[in-house]
């Protein structure tokens, strides 16, 4: 009897042991997956920008970390490789058949789609910026101010407006007729407000607009009433961008030193060398890196 009982009690004692053993070891949890870094984040910081200086922006391209500590300046000149094409004339001065001749035909209106300086062959209105999400200099940490897209004599000024995410977009007009600005942005909600006629010797302004997200490439702006009026707006989420002047020159200050990607875009040409990712350059710390003449070709 006792023998049997002890046998029984051994079995009974063994049971919880067996249960316990089976309980452990089960349910191995898989380690948490590390998410791959996604293309440039859309959040941004503000930098104080003096009027005229256009901060760089990020478009497509892999994130690039700043190498050594140090900040440099890059400059260069974008020139055309090939024949300088004829500039189209959109509206001839005094042409009464044009729309709203009293305002739009006050002067000759050449097309600004592809402006090349005859002597230096420098291309105007080229957007140059550092690709990816470079480290931002603490002085330029905050994006401030407004970027203004103006309209005068039925032309947008500037043709290419590069702005930093965080700045406000201000659309103005000095023309005494109505314009509308159809902004076909991609990630940002498109908008198409009418700009009322400007008062005598004054300016008509729309409410400043805060943009939600950086854009992968500059988006077109067009006036529906005067369809020849076009412009492009680039929205970049860091300050390292510039638009070339009449001679194709550009300069970007306080760029993180080391290996960077330089992306170029022009309305008629499209992307430059390296497409949306950009071409690789090295930025020298505490020095000016002169990239020399960068030539682009028409497609």
């Amino acid at each position: 009897m006792i023998r049997r009982m002890s046998g029984l009690s051994i079995c009974l004692a063994a049971l919880p042991l067996v249960w316990g053993l089976s309980g452990c070891g089960g349910g191995g949890s898989t380690p948490k997956k590390i998410s791959t870094p996604t293309p440039p984040p859309t959040t941004t910081t503000n930098t104080p920008t003096p009027a005229g200086e256009k901060p760089a922006d990020t478009g497509g391209g892999a994130p690039v970390a700043a190498g050594a500590e140090g900040w440099g300046t890059i400059k260069g000149q974008v020139v055309l490789d090939g024949e300088v094409p004829e500039t189209k004339l959109l509206v001839k001065k005094g042409d009464q058949n044009a729309k709203d001749p009293a305002v739009c035909a006050v002067q000759d209106l050449p097309s600004e789609e592809f402006v090349v300086n005859k002597e230096s062959k420098g291309i105007k209105w080229v957007l140059v910026y550092i690709g990816g999400t470079p480290k931002v200099h603490p002085d330029l940490a905050k994006a401030e101010g407004t970027a203004e897209l103006g309209q005068k004599f039925c032309a947008f000024k500037p043709r290419l407006l590069a702005m930093r995410l965080g700045q406000k977009l201000l659309v103005t007009s000095e023309d005494s007729i109505a314009h509308n600005t159809k902004m076909d942005s991609l990630r940002n909600p498109p908008d198409n407000p009418t700009v009322p006629p400007a008062p005598e010797n004054g300016k008509s302004e729309l409410a400043p607009k805060e943009l939600m997200s950086a854009e992968l490439r500059p988006f077109p702006v067009q006036c529906g009433i005067h369809p020849w009026m076009r412009a492009n707006i680039a929205v970049i989420d860091h300050p390292y961008f510039a638009v070339t002047d009449e001679n194709g020159n550009f300069e970007i200050k306080q760029v993180p030193a080391g290996a960077q990607n330089l992306v170029m875009w022009q309305e008629a040409i499209g992307w430059g060398e390296g497409k949306g990712k950009g071409k690789e350059i090295t930025v020298k710390a505490d020095d000016t890196t002169d990239l020399g003449k960068i030539s682009l070709k028409l497609p």
Partner: peptide, 19 residues
């Protein structure tokens, strides 16, 4: 010379010019 809707729409006897 100012117009609003008449810039793109024909309104009454006003037709949008050009374009």
């Amino acid at each position: 010379s100012q117009k609003l809707c008449a810039n793109c729409h024909r309104v009454g006897n006003k037709a949008p010019e050009g374009g």
